[in-house]
Write a protein that binds this DNA or RNA. Structure first.
Lengths: 195, 195
DNA sequence: GTCTATAGGCAGATAGAC
DNA sequence: GTCTATCTGCCTATAGAC
């Protein structure tokens, strides 16, 4: 039996996901091919079909993994930061980090091509947004209670506003290749939520 | 010579643009084909190439016409509404109208697939955003002067924040098919700019 | 301006050997 | 698990008749 490392080297399936993830986030789901992944990985497209029977299944796996990692990042924020406003700042930083890798949020870019996606992928995109808004709404509710955050309207509405603003800021900033552009909008958003 | 009507019936080129425009705004530029347009129009794809030599040229023409119409709408707002805050509300309504037609802003959806676009189209997408932000910055400057609008930071930064927020609100609202979702974020945005 | 016919390429996908 | 070989379908685009 092969030796197991604590931080294991990725298997083929994971490497496929890594490459595909980058391609989705930079080009969109319909704008990369099995051939793109196969070439980069040094195997054939036929081998890809062994790991993921079709592109729809690959797409689903991509969102699932992305959403899991995002959920972990949110848990990490909850553990590390007690202050609600600090949590919102950290949340915005997650987006900035994605953009810094010259990528768009995966579900943001999938939202743009939503009409062309297979049903299972659509469901997962919506779930991602719902999960994010639920987390944001909780942070906002907490922040209102302990007075570290101020806003008018319902936490749900404001949560969806935060999500929309950050997604939009990424969308517009990326063609300019300008991280400062994103940060300006993010700062403005967070300033409006300061108690 | 054929009789010219005041509000002329569209020629073939314009009808092509009408169909292609709807397809871009719902599916994205790379997710529709000449065949889609040809079928709907009842002609062959070969005929399409007579009007637009290639898809890149069609794409350019689409953005140009879209940007012109948008610029006209902004001029109309300038003519009709003296109040800066009213102008911003009307601006947000332009976006809501697009979304009501189950479409995304053309340049918003093109921003998502920016990396895959031919250079001339990229240039025009950027120009569209720049023009919008220039208009917004002017309205903000005017509104600050006549005290119909209040904000902190530079008009340019706030202008780019408004654009980003509205684009993002469209992007996220469309998968839900929920216009109310967009309106909630837009109202929140405008409320933050009220003097 | 619109057609038929066709080229040439790339897409996702499968069968079957190793 | 990965390969070769192959299929079918769709894509953009062009030549040339009408």
């Amino acid at each position: 039996m092969a030796v197991r490392h604590a931080k294991h080297e990725p298997g083929t399936a994971e490497r496929i996901l890594d490459i595909a993830e980058r391609l989705v986030q930079t080009r969109g789901f319909n704008n990369f091919s099995y051939a793109d992944i196969a070439t980069e990985l040094g195997i054939t497209t036929a081998s890809l079909h062994y790991h993921f029977p079709g592109k729809a299944e690959l797409g689903q796996a991509l969102i699932t993994r992305y959403a899991e990692r995002f959920a972990e990042a949110l848990s990490q924020i909850d553990r590390d930061l007690p202050d609600a406003h600090g949590r919102l700042e950290a949340y915005a930083r997650l987006y900035a980090d994605v953009l810094h890798g010259k990528r768009m949020c995966m579900c943001g870019i999938l939202a743009a091509e939503y009409q062309t996606l297979p049903k299972p992928m659509r469901t997962e995109v919506i779930r991602f947004f719902d999960d994010n808004q639920r987390w944001l709404a909780e942070v906002l509710t907490q922040g209102r209670a302990d007075q570290s955050v101020a806003f008018s309207g319902s936490p749900d509405d404001v949560a969806q506003g935060i999500l929309s603003t950050l997604e939009g800021a990424m969308l517009v900033a990326r063609p300019y290749g300008d991280l400062a552009r994103f940060n300006a909008t993010a700062r403005q958003l967070l300033a409006g939520l300061r108690a």
